[in-house]
Amino acid sequence: MGNVDEGPRHAERSVRAGWPGMRGKRVVVTGGSRGLGEGIVRLLLAEGARVATCARGKAGLAALDASLPGEERARLLTEDLDVTEPGRLEDFVTTAAKRFGTLDGVVACVGGSRGGGFEQADAADWAATWDLNVGHTVRLVRAALPYLRAAGGGSVVLISSISGWKPGRSAQYGAAKSAQIHLAASLARELGPDNIRVNAVSPGSMLIPGRRWDRLRREDPGAYDRFVGAELPGGRPVTPHEVARAVVFLLSDWASGVSGAHLPVDRAQNAPSPDGY
């Protein structure tokens, strides 16, 4: 019987026995000034990575920069831009790659929805939601490809949502997030020969100060408790830091065998919202 390890071998990166972390890795993260994006940026910097992040609004980026220790601040590049504006995202990726030498990873974290329910959302709302989620993701990955190839490969993480695989309002948002999950699986096959891994992460409801679930908890604690009791068997929503740890794992060499995966980080949440299915 032949040895199962016999046959052609691909070049492999050396991974030491302990947690390899992200020290020295060069990563672009979109939407890094608040919420999950900020959590990913902070964790990457704490792990020793060099990070470039963009977001709309100088104030949030300035606050992030000012809150960091000096050594981490020196490894952070920020730019105020709208990822849907033609050319701006591509230019930012090029700037980051030139500053860092090349790129080892990208995280498509910008997302959102425009319009209300199905009958209220018009064609422009659908197009804008698609462009913000799927369009920006495609442009980010395309812009980063030459640099990931130059580095000998890398990791791409697409931030989808529980709404991308568990139906709920709004349909335009769920459809866009579902497309990101499919995109990750498809690109993993297409880019695999270049040693580029692509995975999707779907956060559940996240408890972020000032955002939807935090506001509900403060303004209508009864409704919040009913939602948690009915839909969250873990007894609480996930935190951005919990999701960020999964993202950083997928960016790291410890996840070298993981590509084309869809990783929910939702504490076994059922419906995406109190509306249920």
Rank of each mutant, 00 (worst) to 15 (best):
P20W: 07
F100D: 10
D266C: 13
P233F: 06
A121D: 04
S252G: 12
R23M: 02
G35I: 02
W213C: 00
L61I: 08
A244I: 02
R245C: 09
L263R: 09
P203C: 01
A62V: 02
G260P: 11
G35F: 04
G2C: 03
V265L: 07
S259C: 05
P203R: 04
V106F: 10
R42C: 00
L45C: 12
G112L: 03
V4L: 12
V83D: 10
G210A: 02
L44W: 12
M22L: 15
R34T: 11
R267Q: 08
G260W: 12
M1V: 11
E12I: 04
R245Q: 15
G32E: 07
S178F: 08
P240C: 04
V4R: 14
I181W: 06
L89F: 00
A96L: 07
A185L: 07
P8M: 05
E190K: 11
P272F: 06
S205Q: 11
A268Q: 09
V138R: 10
V15R: 15
P167E: 11
W126I: 00
S163R: 14
V41R: 02
G18A: 14
L76K: 13
S14D: 09
G39Q: 01
L250W: 03
R9H: 14
V28R: 10
S259K: 07
A123D: 15
G204M: 06
E90P: 06
L140Y: 01
A127E: 15
V238K: 09
V41F: 00
A66W: 08
Y173H: 07
E190I: 07
T94S: 13
V198H: 13
L45K: 12
R149G: 05
R211L: 04
P193S: 09
L183P: 14
A261R: 07
E190D: 15
R34Q: 14
R267L: 12
G7H: 12
G105F: 05
A255W: 03
Y147M: 03
W213Y: 12
A176L: 04
N199W: 05
A184E: 06
